[in-house]
Amino acid sequence: MRNTLIGLVAILLWSACKSGSDKQKLPIYGNRAPVTKMVNGKQVTDTIYQTIPSFKFVNQYGDSISNKTLNGNIYVVDFFFTTCPSICPIMHRNMLKVYKTFKSTGNFKIISHTIDPKHDSVPVLKKYADKLGITDNSWWFLQGKKEDIYTIAEKNYLVAVKQDSSAAGGYIHAGYFVLIDKQKRIRGSYDGTDPKQVDQLIDDIKVLQSEPDQMIVQ
């Protein structure tokens, strides 16, 4: 009798955990605004979420990459520079794990923006990517106008970057990996120098991939 009871409790606990993980959902970050509109004569209230605005950069192959190129993709964003002596190697060692997990799943990209576009020209980024072992189109290293990079980092991806001659390598920046969904909304932000948080990112990308495609709000 006692054993049966313990068994029953164990099963209950296990199923409780299971149903919890089945319904796992990622939060949606950023401002949101309600919008009321008429659909088929009925008044419907919808939510407009904050999304990543349009941008235009160039990748390591010299191809122009815009917000439209990323339509229909889940993507992870970070900010780095090739001569960074501090956190970048550890970030990209961890990002390699993300890359290897998802490179062949399709509709997935990693975009790493250089915050030192003066030094990190397209050929420099290509060489960096080659040495890192990236030869396909799942991980892009982006170059562009400095103001554009810094603005999108701080205003849209919410990652602090700053030029500072007293910092190691000449720049201060935060090593966040930001997760963007197919509707271009921020769904997570992870410390790219912490292997545990990067494992969480990998789990969260899987959750996001299993999310049903919703109407794309643009």
Partner: peptide
């Protein structure tokens, strides 16, 4: 050293 060369001294691809 660890940021670049790794906790296990593994380096990073062909970079480090």
């Amino acid at each position: 050293c660890q940021n670049c060369h790794g906790a296990g001294g593994e380096g990073l691809s062909a970079l480090i």
